[in-house]
Every structure is written in C-alpha cells, then in structure tokens.
Amino acid sequence: MLKTLSFIDLFCGGGFGARGAVSGGGNPLLALDAWDLAVETYRANFPEATVLHERIENIDPFQYSGLFKPDVLLTSPECTSHSIARGSKPGNEKSRETAIGIFPWIEAFNPRWVIVENVNRMKLWDRHEELLATLEDYGYTVNQMILNAAEFGTPQARKRLFMVCDREGSVMTGESLLKAHKQTIQSARSIIDWSGRFKSTPLYRIGRAKSTLERAERAIDSLGRNIPFLIVYYGTDYAGGWQTLDVPLRTVTTIDRFGLVTWLNDVPMLRMLQPSELLKAMGTNETHLLPAGNRRDKVKLCGNGVCSPVTEMIFREIHRIMESEYPVAVAV
C-alpha cells in the first residue's frame, strides 16, 4: 500500500482534480477558492479538509503553516485570461497573476512537489518565463507537459499544461507518464444517460437557430439517418460543429455547449447534455456530489475543473518515483 501524499489545493474548484489526487493516494488538508459554490462543492466531497472561501491574495498562508505539512501543493490558477474560450475579450492581467500568488504558499509550507495546471496558452503569457525561473529559484526542477485527458481514460479530449515541479530533481515527461499510466480511450457514448429521463424536443422546430440546424445537417449528411451524434450548440467550433459518439467528447467549457441528437421514428430530436453527463466527462461519476446550484452553475463547475484521471495518474507517478528512491520509507 502506498504512503498517503498530503496536499494543499489552491484554486480548488469543485474538487475534480482533488478527486483524482485522492484516487491516486492523496489526502486533502487545506483548499482555497474564491467562488462560494465551488467551496460548498469541495466541502461536500471532502469534509475532512479545511476549505477557505477567499481570493488567494487575501490570505496569509503563514497563519496555517504550523497546522499543515503537505507533500504536494496542487494549484490551478485562473485560466480565462489565457484561454481562447474567452473569445475577443481582452485578457485580465490580474487574473493571470494568480499564478504568481502561489509563491507565498511555497514559502510557508515548503512542499517537495508543486503542480500547476492551466490551459496550454499559459505558455504564451509574457510572465511565463518569470514563473518558471522563480520556481527554479525555489529549488524546483520544472517538468512541463501538455497532457490530453483522453489518453488517461477520461471520456473527454481536454489538453492542458501541467507543470510538475520536484525539489529532488526528478524528471517526468508526458511520454514517460503515458508509458506508465496510459489508459483505454473512452468515448462520448459512455457518458450519455440513455434512460429517457431527460426529454428531447424536435430538432426542426420554430425558433431553432439556423446555425444549429446547419451543424446537425452536416452530421446527418456524413453519418446517415437514425444515428445519434453531438452538436456544438453554443460557442465557436472549428471542426464542423458536430462529432460522433465514438470518440471522446470535445473540451467541456463553462457554458452549456453540447447538444445530443437522437431519433424518434426517423425524426431527429435534440436535448442538451446534462450536468450529470458532463460530470462523467470530467472523469468522475455521480458519487461526486454537486450542490443545489442551478444548471448553469453546475456546468460552470465542470468546465472550470481538472479531469480527475489526470491528477490520479500524476499522483501515482509521484508515488512510483518516491518508492524508487525510498522503498522502505514510503511502504506501509
């Protein structure tokens, strides 16, 4: 049995990353998020953890340094100002700089491991090199990896930057992580609730947007009739606006994005994917509790999250590295 790796979770969201970390042998000590619904969700799922509802710049981490001794600092700084998902809105530098806010926590807790998760475009941030250099100044070897959650068994194609930093100098690459922990690819079909409890309406109805119909018709022209598929209902899409159910779901965002087209007596029917289905697309399941927020909030919780299987495999790899160094010390 592996030694438990205790961790502090900054920008913790609804705890999807923490769910994976726990599955990989982690134990959450302290978590922080500025969104009240995310904090409520995290507390519901990890009642043993201390969860703070506050912005990172308003917390002095040294007030907690005598209470917790984490092995890992798990962080997911705000990503909207790095992401193309924000559209044409200008980037918010204050949002970007939440990544810099992790350094007082490093000073306060001195963890061996620091994990920073963000969108790929964070590498284009003009302070990204400063972030790397500062982590190295604190004594960390920084391993930067672009990981696709689908390759770790998540039924979602979600590429994210993971910076896994180790004070003992271990090297971790995307290739080595996949070699040790690659999982079977899961399709979008696996997340669909086929019970019929979620009602669909006819695709062709008064008021349906022309662009929605065009996307659906492209899918029908390609697949034929009476084959279910997904359309991108809202948001920009560069792949025709639809996808089959036989590949992982495209990236879940913070808006209600995906519509499922099914057939009833040769009539195409449409409904949106439900939060419970998006939860599965994040690599967790309905045992992970979502609070009594509205539908929009639940979708946002998923879109802001970290896919659980990815953090699980990173924690498993950390265990493997530590066992190779100290086989007796980390075995119980």
Score class of each variant (00 low, 15 high):
R167W: 00
R43I: 12
A34P: 00
R167A: 13
D193E: 06
T173Y: 10
A49Q: 02
L203Y: 04
D297Q: 12
I191T: 06
D166A: 08
K298S: 07
G240E: 05
E217V: 08
T98G: 06
L132Y: 06
T253P: 05
R250M: 14
T75C: 14
I100R: 02
W125V: 05
F68G: 01
I206H: 14
A31L: 06
V142Y: 03
T254F: 06
I146K: 15
V171W: 10
T253Q: 05
G91E: 14
A108Q: 00
D60W: 02
R271H: 04
F229N: 03
H53M: 04
P268I: 07
A180M: 15
A85I: 11
T262P: 00
K210W: 06
E168I: 12
L178Q: 11
S190N: 08
N285Y: 04
P268F: 10
K199H: 13
T41V: 05
V142H: 03
W125L: 10
L289K: 12
W113P: 00
W194Y: 14
G224N: 07
T236H: 11
E286L: 15
A99K: 02
P70T: 03
N110P: 01
S187D: 11
S83H: 04
L203F: 11
E317I: 09
E129W: 11
Q183L: 13
E136G: 04
V328F: 13
C12G: 05
V119Y: 12
N294I: 07
P268Y: 06
M322Q: 15
A157G: 04
I146P: 00
C12V: 06
P248C: 12
S308T: 04
R257A: 10
R189C: 10
D9R: 07
I185S: 11
N110S: 07
I206A: 15
V142P: 09
F162C: 07
K159C: 10
G235N: 03
H53L: 14
E277H: 07
E325S: 12
F258M: 08
V299K: 01
H319M: 12
S200R: 10
R121T: 09
R121Y: 03
F62H: 02
N118Q: 05
D36N: 01
L178N: 12
P155R: 01
R225Q: 13
I8P: 02
C12A: 13
G207R: 04
R158Y: 08
P90W: 03
A180C: 15
P155Q: 02
R215M: 07
G174A: 12
K94V: 15
E40W: 01
T284N: 05
Y238I: 10
P275A: 04
W105S: 02
L260R: 10
K123S: 11
E136I: 10
K210Y: 10
M272L: 15
S324A: 15
F62Q: 01
R19G: 00
N304M: 05
V232M: 05
G101N: 02
L29I: 03
S95D: 13
I206P: 11
A149S: 14
L278N: 03
T80F: 07
L178H: 08
R205H: 09
K69A: 14
R197C: 15
P327D: 07
L178W: 06
W194K: 13
D33Y: 03
C302N: 00
V267H: 08
I321F: 12
I314P: 04
V330I: 14
G305K: 00
H288W: 00
Y64I: 03
Q63A: 12
